[in-house]
């Protein structure tokens, strides 16, 4: 983000740079006003009151921060997905689950049926061959997501980059999406939550699911989701994250190479989470 608009303050005194956190926050604010100014100039879809507020503020400060670069954000040019190599995933290992819980500050009360289940491990045995395998199941980030179709308020939605999320600002907790999801990927928050992390807001009475670690995606530093990081740290590297729309990406190449499959492909949901060795 920092390269989006020229920082009107960065050319000031050097000691300004070393000043307090409040000043840093202020600097960021000025930067962002630049961003807002751009968005006002390019007549983006900001609601009236705020776009007015933004441009008004920018005018107050006399920022000429208009830049040629567009406001970033999610883009439909990418579609994020996961590839899970079941041959590398081992039964009994739940590093990905723990990694997810730590990343999002999810506490475990011990009741598996009411606790958050963003990602779960399943051990399977093939009925014909007797072959066993283990794999994680999380929100499959369907292209045509049933949870998005059924949500009455539109709180369950698909971002432009294919990540299926719950907008907790508009979720009324009707739980219809949980009935609709064929993967049981959605969890309802049954108890009051108090010790949230600022990167993962979650609270009683709303529905949640795997976010594909959007806060990491949006970070712009090409961070991997917490489950993939935890899996690699545990020396399995069974989870690969990447852009499904880019035919040259590692994930796209692997999917082609190993003929990766979707869970319940018969439902024709075009999931963004794929599995090899299924």
């Amino acid at each position: 983000m920092s390269d989006l608009a020229p920082d009107p303050v960065s050319c000031m005194d050097a000691d300004f740079e070393h000043n307090t956190k409040a000043n840093a926050a202020r600097r960021r604010f000025l930067q962002r006003i630049g961003v807002m100014g751009v968005s006002a100039l390019t007549a983006s879809s900001l609601p009236m009151n705020v776009s007015r507020g933004g441009s008004l503020l920018a005018a107050d400060i006399g920022s000429s921060a208009a830049s040629d670069e567009p406001v970033s954000g999610v883009s439909s040019e990418r579609r994020w997905g996961l590839l899970i190599d079941t041959s590398k995933c081992s039964a009994g290992c739940d590093a990905c689950v723990r990694g997810c819980h730590e990343e999002h500050g999810i506490g475990v009360s011990g009741n598996d049926h009411t606790d958050a289940q963003w990602i779960r491990k399943i051990d399977l045995e093939d009925n014909d061959s007797g072959e066993t395998m283990s794999l994680p199941v999380m929100c499959q980030h369907c292209e045509t997501a049933p949870c998005v179709d059924v949500c009455p308020t539109g709180a369950s939605f698909k971002r432009a980059d294919g990540v299926v999320l719950v907008n907790k600002h508009t979720c009324i907790g009707c739980r219809y999406c949980m009935l609709a999801c064929p993967y049981k990927a959605r969890s309802y928050i049954h108890e009051p939550v108090t010790d949230q992390l600022s990167r993962a807001p979650r609270g009683k009475g709303t529905v949640e699911s795997c976010t594909l670690c959007v806060h990491r995606i949006d970070d712009g530093q090409n961070l991997q989701p917490a489950c993939a990081v935890a899996c690699r740290k545990d020396a399995h590297s069974a989870i690969v994250f990447g852009d499904l729309n880019n035919p040259d990406s590692e994930i796209s190449k692997s999917i082609r190479e190993h003929d990766a499959k979707q869970v319940r492909a018969d439902l024709q949901l075009n999931t963004a989470v794929r599995y090899t060795g299924l």
């Binding site: 983000m1 960021r28 962002r32 406001v71 971002r159 907008n167 806060h215 949006d218």
Partner: peptide
């Protein structure tokens, strides 16, 4: 209004660095 707008920006458009971030409010 700023917080609501920032919330929509963050959740829907993935713009996390907006000026009116809830986490920044809490920090200060």
């Amino acid at each position: 209004d700023l917080l609501v707008h920032q919330g929509d920006d963050t959740v829907i458009r993935g713009l996390r660095e907006g000026p009116f971030s809830m986490a920044d409010c809490v920090d200060c």
